[in-house]
């Protein structure tokens, strides 16, 4: 087989807590797995469930949604909506055949650079253990060629 599988994880995170927490991990020169790519929104409440589906559709092996701790939302309670959406989203992706461990919701504050590092490292290993999701190949809907029809 080819070289070791490197998980690809999309992080949908809020500007005020988790993005800043990731910044803090940087300024503190902490080290973590290079498997995540952050997409910044202002509030985790902006994370439309379709963004998660899109990441899986694109080929992500994991998706992390992260925002301020409940009660500490920069927008009072935007993250509360994320918290409410998440359980249904979990059920939904399971119905699509995506392992629950490929998606996580974490509250990471601007002061928790270490938590960000821990979550990223842990999730990277979790997803690595699951192996590639390989969504595109597993859901390809190739339309059969014209000649396959033989009914008369």
């Amino acid at each position: 087989m080819s070289h070791e599988f490197e998980p690809r994880i999309v992080v949908l995170c809020c500007n005020w807590c988790t993005y800043a927490g990731a910044d803090l991990a940087g300024t503190s020169r902490m080290k973590y797995a290079p498997n995540v790519r952050l997409v910044r929104v202002m509030c985790s409440g902006r994370v439309d469930p379709s963004f998660v589906l899109r990441a899986f559709q694109d080929g992500a092996d994991g998706v992390l949604i992260a925002g301020c701790h409940p009660g500490d939302c920069h927008y009072i309670n935007g993250n509360l909506k994320t918290l409410r959406r998440y359980p249904a989203l979990e059920t939904l992706i399971a119905q699509f055949g995506i392992e629950p461990d490929r998606m996580r919701l974490e509250w990471i504050s601007a002061a928790e650079g270490d938590v960000f590092v821990h979550v990223v490292n842990e999730m990277t290993e979790q997803v690595r253990a699951l192996g590639p999701l390989d969504w595109k190949r597993r859901t390809a809907m190739t339309v059969p060629a014209a000649e396959s029809h033989t009914a008369g």
Partner: peptide, 25 residues
């Protein structure tokens, strides 16, 4: 719409009367 299922899921669950994770779940 980006995805009708995501649209409906987001709208219906966002207004569920729950303020903490266990309750939401």
């Amino acid at each position: 719409s980006l995805d009708v299922g995501a649209d409906a899921l987001s709208a219906m669950t966002s207004i569920v009367d729950a303020a903490e994770e266990g309750d939401a779940r």
